[in-house]
Write a protein that binds this DNA or RNA. Structure first.
Length: 1119
RNA sequence: GCCCGGAUGGUGGAAUUGGUAGACACGCAGGACUUAAAAUCCUGUGGCUUCACGGCUGUGCGGGUUCAAGUCCCGCUCUGGGUACCA
């Protein structure tokens, strides 16, 4: 019998399918074990040989656990929503659902060939309504909950509403977007819409105006983890910052629990570190610095400040736009402007296309804080109505009244419009309120405002020599004096026009003095306030106290602008650089002098608290996740709009299915693709949300759904969840460290909080498999003068020779001679022409060649000549060979089509079988390490399987016997059992392949074909090479699947040796070995070793200084 | 810059607690079988040196600890990945 792997594999795959071998049910008699692979996005390119690496490892582990008596859940599914299918749809018009379905079918076909033990009856696809209804359901739950920072738990929003009704924000411990305060009376007086707007500040799923990563090329916003170095991770398109109203998830509320959870899960330290860094906790203090403000505008003649109603950050962005608007007025606007201009309305001055906060308003009377807006028909659209609501809300916050008119009203009833405006103007009583554009946290009136800073180094307060504000800070405008205004404006304009990328690339110090000063709350010194973009508005308070002596960024800034530097640490040398380390003894620091830094930090914090100068605070770098995508191929939000406010659909309405659209592009009005869907509204006629959910939505809870995939009443039943609990082993790529692995932890914690599931952490143990890189092959072509039509390829040896820097004339001549010889065999006329050339520079060119026509770096010249890709150049080319072979160069690169180095698992399975593929993938090297795929070694693994086979069959003859095994055979077997068990438990699969090889080699050389030995060996092998193991298992006379065999029990007794081979070393260098009885004691070993004649020779008449005997290990004699 | 890995023959890699460095494979060389090829099997294979026995040397580099270091400590170099003005 030959080892006919193709037939064997087909046969058993069919058997497993028919017998439902891999289907699992809840079985409370057995302990459970849950092994999960990160589910793939089914791309159009199919699987390459790198993809199954992790799947094979997890499959081995699953099968092993099953042999060990566990009830193993090992499911697979597809992360089916995603950009590539949508991009493809845009290009071809093919519905992404069809593309996705086809890709999934291809993936499945490829996966099936490898013989995985997945329970396919539990498959999930994120794009199927019966799956994504639970994504939508969770979103509704998140909308209806807030996060209690005191209980560290999500609670129903109703609780918060009740609290507001009784106490307002007093005593509230809820995670929020913005710190706001109001009384119960305030709350109860608010309209329903106003209440809804306020609640958005607390919901876990909320809608807000946020600075987003906008990718114009993809036409969508991206999450932080989808952007790398200013470009999109997928596609590498530029990304810019933009303010947009988006759905967000309050993941920041879970920051502390995400950190705490890391302590109890078994992930690699480096992965935990990435998450810790991403969460970015810093404990410090917030401190208020009083500012001596520039004189109020009235005192200066009101030159420019009253016009400065724009949020300065937006000003630079919007200024040009506002000018364009002014030049392109609508008819209605012109009509209205003609009467409002020149103070013709009761003497009130109006401005048009004025920037207020981040909006360009049509008309404004600054004196009365009245905004007049004229709207076209466009404002009847739901999304615009909604945006208008927000706009009105924000403008009201800034104390502006807004009245709106339609174009029709203005054009046809201008007198009615004017009457209304005039009435409104006269009714507004403007309180002499200052700082309208300043957030409420600025204390006091003009002249005694204060700025809050966040610092982790409260101890360095005496070293603060200046303050720095972020350019985008709302305080920037407040502290800018008239004298500095033009300078500041110039600076703000400059930094605003810079893209994120430019800012990152250019690390030059830049900044501008605001003209104002702040007072150090502890030392009382006056310090200048500067504005610079090295301070970020989004972190802390957007303002810092600069301590140049002990912060390198502050140091660079101080040096550049010649600001004072005060050293606070005894003995520190700060002449060249700052001392950032948190160590040393304090000096120049008043009450902190003499303390070490750690003590000083604590004491300074206590001081700040006691003296009411600020508060102790913890900041996190982790930001809320933006949850809207302006794309088609994603989960629709279960959201509709009523009076411009978002409302959740009833859970009974779920799933809200993704509608059909005619094109997968934004609408003419710039709405997302769902704007094209017909009747995209509720039964009552309310418009539905046009955004869809991002990629991580569907992947955040899929591991729960596998437990109970067909349940149409719940995400997962209590019974299933209580049995399967959470994932025991999760395998996947490291690239998900700060995306999926954060979001799914948050999602899981939320479901835990609301009592839907029983465990807080989803993935107990996690292993990252390394990437499989490609190994590319090159052919080298001589670059001949243009008049030569011939192509000449040279084998690697000659390429290397010509590459040599100091190539000798002799070497060159030898090469030329050989080249001449080989060329003349094919084309002697060419040799003549070549020799007529005065000088040949021997320029050469490396060209990627398809690795599939290269074997062990030897090019298959015939296939190369006829390969469609190379034909044109290669058809009649001349090959200069070495040893009659054409050897290719090689390099390790990414596995990709463009490198011509993609190896398809199907081809390997076809040629060697799935078992060889599985084993070879494991044999390549440690699971967690990245390594190149090099098909070269695969023969060795395949030969191993053949040798294993030959223990059972000699030719056509079945040679297994029932003889009793001898001690040596049992020793080999049990050595292997021990090794394999240890290896699997430690995910060291590459070494177990070696162990199997050693075992089979030894059994072969002993000609051992005893059933007692082979039976156990087959079970050991079954997790790795299930097909051949199943075949041999049945050959041995078993009727049931090898999957349900029992893992052999290791018996130490078989390994006991009667003799030990002692290496005898001198000064640590082994010279010879000595075989001694294992039960010999230390003294006897020493004596025997010293008496040995080789020892005497080594000692050369000298007495040893010392003899070390490690029993059972080694003897070392010190000379 | 910071954080986390890695560096061992021509190649992939092994050495689990400090105890014979290079297991197991690939490749290469030689041989057996064969008319021949494939397949299979056997032998050799870190480097230098020696006819040989053997000797010397050797785990990125420089130090150190130890009877003994690929493994532990200190200081570097190169390299892969993550991250980025986070106060």
């Amino acid at each position: 019998m030959e080892y006919n792997f193709n037939a064997i594999e087909k046969k058993w795959q069919q058997f497993w399918k028919e017998n439902k071998t891999y289907q699992v049910q809840i079985d409370t008699n057995k302990p459970k074990y849950y092994v999960l692979d990160m589910f793939p996005y089914p791309s159009g390119a199919g699987l390459h040989v790198g993809h199954p690496l992790g799947y094979i490892a997890s499959d081995i582990y699953s099968r092993y656990k099953r042999l060990k008596g566990f009830n193993v859940l090992h499911p697979m599914g597809y992360d089916a929503y995603g950009l590539p299918a949508e991009q493809y749809a845009i290009q071809t018009g093919q519905h992404p659902a069809i593309t996705t379905k086809n890709n999934i079918a291809r993936y499945r076909e490829q996966l099936d060939k490898i013989g995985f033990s997945y329970d396919w009856s539990r498959e999930v696809r994120t794009c199927e309504p019966d799956y994504y209804q639970w994504t939508q359901w969770a979103f509704i739950k998140m909308f209806n909950h807030y996060y209690d920072t005191n209980l560290q738990k999500a609670l129903p929003i109703e609780n918060l509403i009740k609290a507001f009704e009784v106490n307002g924000t007093n005593g509230i411990t809820a995670a929020f977007t913005e710190e706001i305060s109001f009384t119960a009376a305030d709350w109860n007086a608010k309209s329903d819409i106003e209440k809804q707007e306020l609640l958005m500040n607390y919901r876990i799923a909320y809608k807000a105006d946020t600075m987003v990563n906008w990718c114009p090329a993809l036409g969508t916003v991206l999450a932080n983890d989808e952007v790398s170095e200013g470009v999109s991770v997928r596609g590498g398109h530029p990304v810019e910052q933009k303010i947009m109203s988006q759905w967000c998830l309050r993941v920041s509320a879970y920051a502390q629990r995400l950190l705490d959870g890391l302590e109890v899960i078994d992930w690699t330290e480096s992965l935990k570190d990435s998450q810790r860094y991403w969460i970015g906790k810093s404990e410090g203090a917030e401190m208020k610095f009083k500012i001596s403000l520039p004189p109020a505008p009235s005192e200066r003649g009101g030159e420019c400040l009253p016009y400065q109603t724009a949020d300065l950050y937006s000003y630079a962005l919007l200024k040009e736009l506002s000018e364009i608007h002014r030049k392109n007025t609508t008819e209605a606007e012109s009509v209205l402007w003609s009467v409002l201009r020149n103070k013709s309305l009761s003497g009130y001055k109006f401005r048009r296309q004025h920037i207020i906060d981040k909006y360009i308003v049509d008309f404004v009377c600054l004196e009365k804080h009245l905004i007049v807006e004229v709207d076209g028909g466009y404002h009847n659209r739901p999304d615009i109505q909604e945006a208008d609501k927000v706009r009105t809300f924000i403008l009201r916050e800034k104390d502006f009244e807004v009245i709106r008119f339609t174009n029709d009203e203005v054009i046809n009833n201008i007198h009615v419009v004017l009457e209304k405006i005039e009435k409104k103007l006269n009714s507004i009583e403007i309180q002499p309120k200052l700082d309208q554009t300043i957030s409420p946290s600025v204390g006091g009136g003009r002249g005694e405002a204060s700025l809050t800073v966040f610092t982790t180094r409260a101890d360095t307060i005496y070293g603060v020599t200046f303050m720095v504000l972020a350019p985008e800070s709302e305080y920037t405008q407040l502290v800018t004096t008239a004298e500095q205004k033009s300078e500041v404006d110039k600076y703000l304009h400059k930094v605003k026009n810079r893209t994120e990328r430019e800012r990152l690339a250019d690390r030059k110090v830049s900044g501008v003095f605001s003209g104002s000063y702040a007072i150090n709350p502890i030392s009382g010194t006056e310090i200048p306030i500067w504005i610079s973009d090295y301070v970020l508005a989004g972190y802390g308070t957007g303002a810092i106290m600069a301590v140049p002596a002990h912060d390198s960024r502050d140091y660079a800034f101080a040096k550049h602008f010649n600001l004072p530097i005060i050293c606070l640490i005894e003995g520190a040398d700060i002449s060249e650089e700052s001392l950032d380390a948190k160590e040393g003894i304090m000096m120049n620091s008043g009450f902190l002098n003499g303390l070490n830094v750690k003590e000083a930090i604590q004491k300074a914090k206590d001081y700040i608290k006691e003296n009411n100068l600020g508060r102790v605070k913890t900041n996190y770098r982790l930001r809320d996740a933006i949850f809207s995508r302006q794309r088609y191929w994603g989960e629709p939000f279960p959201v509709y709009y009523k009076d411009g406010m978002p409302q959740m659909l009833d859970e009974k309405e779920l799933p809200l299915e993704l509608p059909e659209v005619d094109k997968y592009l934004p609408t003419e009005k710039g709405e997302p693709p769902l704007g094209r869907a017909k009747n995209w509204q509720t039964k009552e006629g309310y418009p539905l949300e046009l955004n869809t959910m991002p990629g991580f939505a569907g992947s955040s809870a899929y591991f729960l759904r596998y437990m109970d995939p067909k349940n149409n009443k719940e995400l997962v039943s209590k019974e299933a969840n209580n049995y399967w609990k959470s994932v025991d082993l999760y395998l996947g790529g490291i690239e998900h460290a700060t995306g999926h692995l954060i979001y799914s932890r948050v999602w899981n914690k939320f479901l835990y909080d609301i009592g839907e599931i029983c465990e807080d952490e989803p993935f107990k143990k996690l292993i990252n498999q390394g990437m499989i890189q490609g190994r590319s092959n090159f052919v080298y072509r001589l670059v001949l003068p243009i008049e030569f039509k011939e192509k000449i390829y040279i084998s690697k040896k000659y390429y290397d020779l010509l590459e040599k820097e100091n190539i000798s004339n002799i070497e060159l001549q030898e090469f030329q001679k050989e080249a001449r010889r080989q060329i003349s065999k094919v084309n002697s006329e060419l040799v003549e022409r070549l020799e007529k050339l005065n000088s040949i520079t021997w320029n050469k060119q490396g060209i990627h060649v398809d690795v599939n026509i290269v074997d062990n770096d030897v090019l298959n010249i015939e296939e190369f000549r006829n390969h469609p890709k190379y034909k044109q150049d290669a058809k009649d080319a001349i090959f200069i060979l070495e040893d009659d072979k054409f050897i290719c160069g090689w390099a390790v690169e990414k596995m990709s089509k463009s490198m011509d180095n993609v190896v398809n698992p199907d081809d390997i399975v076809e040629k060697y079988g799935a078992d060889t593929l599985r084993l070879y993938e494991m044999f390549l090297g440690p699971l967690e390490q990245s390594k190149p795929w090099d098909t070269n070694g695969i023969d060795g693994v395949h030969r191993f399987l053949k040798r294993l086979w030959s223990l059972f069959y000699k030719g056509e003859e079945y040679i297994v016997t029932d003889e009793d095994p001898i001690a040596d055979e049992l020793k080999i077997l049990h050595k292997t059992i021990k090794k394999i068990e240890w290896d699997i438990e430690n995910f060291s699969f590459n070494t177990s392949v070696s162990a199997f090889m050693i075992c089979v080699n030894e059994l072969s050389s002993m000609k051992c074909s005893k059933k007692a030995i082979l039976s156990d060996l087959v079970v050991l092998l079954a997790p790795y090479v299930p097909h051949i193991a199943e075949e041999l298992w049945h050959v041995l006379g078993n009727k049931a699947s090898v999957c349900d065999a029992k893992f052999p029990v290791f018996n130490e007794a078989y390994l006991v040796e009667s003799v030990v081979k002692y290496p005898i070393s001198f000064n640590g260098k082994v010279k010879f070995t000595l075989e001694l009885p294992a039960d010999m004691n230390k003294e006897e070993v020493e004596k025997t070793a010293l008496a040995n004649e080789q020892t005497i020779k080594q000692l050369n008449g000298n007495a040893p200084k010392k003899v070390i005997v490690v029993l059972g290990k080694i003897v070392n004699i010190v000379l």
